[in-house]
Amino acid sequence: MGIIQKVLNVDRRVIYLIVFLAVAIPIIFPLNLPVTLTEEVMGVYNEIENLPEGSPILIAVDYEPSSSPELNPMTRAILKHCFKKNLRVVTTTIWPTDGSGGSIADKLVEEEARIAGKIRGKDFVNLGFKTGSYAVVIGMGEDFKKTFPKDFNGNVLDKLEILNGTHSNGNSESSLPNAAFSQDARAKKINSLKDFSYMVCIHDDSSVFTWITYGYERYGIKIGTGCTAVMAPGNYPSLQAKQITGIIGGLKGASEYEKLMNYRGEGARGMDSQSVIHVFIIILIFLGNLTYFILERKKTVRG
């Protein structure tokens, strides 16, 4: 009775301590657990994989610094993918109400671009943050450059090569009539949301619904989502309704994307801690119920 009673009334602080250790230990000593792929993540990966070289892609980094441990790994993996495919990467932030103002996106894209050897303004641009949530999406749909006259670093957007496309001049047109079109993806100008071949919205709040309601519904931009694990179930109805092509959920999703990109990053390593905690919680629930039922039974026997 004594022990059971003690287990049942265990001080919550003991649980807190175990949680902390369960997270910390696998970070210091990695377990290298395997990663399996899911359809939802493939839904985003395949879309990007199938884009022709030079296609413009929009990445909405709609999360606050507090979510970055969970979402940065997937943003990194997606950026690596886009740069590997030589896409034109445009990042923006429409959501954080009290957040970073576009600096998360800037740091990540800068770092990944340096690794991939990409040039700002030509291969990628960070538009930064603008308030107004759906009004910004509508603005981007109507007139991209009017909504974002300058990028995050204050460069005039109209002058950047990335938005104007590498347009071939008239000469090549005359010799080979198809040539002006054949470089289609690379030559495409970006004037509106409609001009993007794909977008990925990485979010920790409901910004994806703003993108769906206004970006997809009004301007028909194809959307893939990456989100915190808690938001992931909320995106399934949209997936089923075919409003989005895939979901990358939390660190698990990030670890899968890392596997697709052939490396073990923060996502995969974080999954080790995850596994330990999940098992710990399940043990807690079992323990809680076991002691509860033993006590209940004793009560009925005595009664």
Binding site: V10, R12, I15, Y16, V19, F20, V23, E64, P65, S66, S67, S68, P69, I277, F280, I281, L284, I285, L287, G288, N289, Y292, F293
Partner: peptide, 25 residues
């Protein structure tokens, strides 16, 4: 930023204690 990340991460601790305390069949 560290203040908000840390406060946000408290959720993990509370979820565990809630799971132990309230998840009874």
């Amino acid at each position: 930023t560290p203040l908000s990340s840390t406060t946000f991460s408290l959720t993990a601790f509370f979820i565990c204690s809630a799971a132990y305390r309230a998840f009874r069949a």
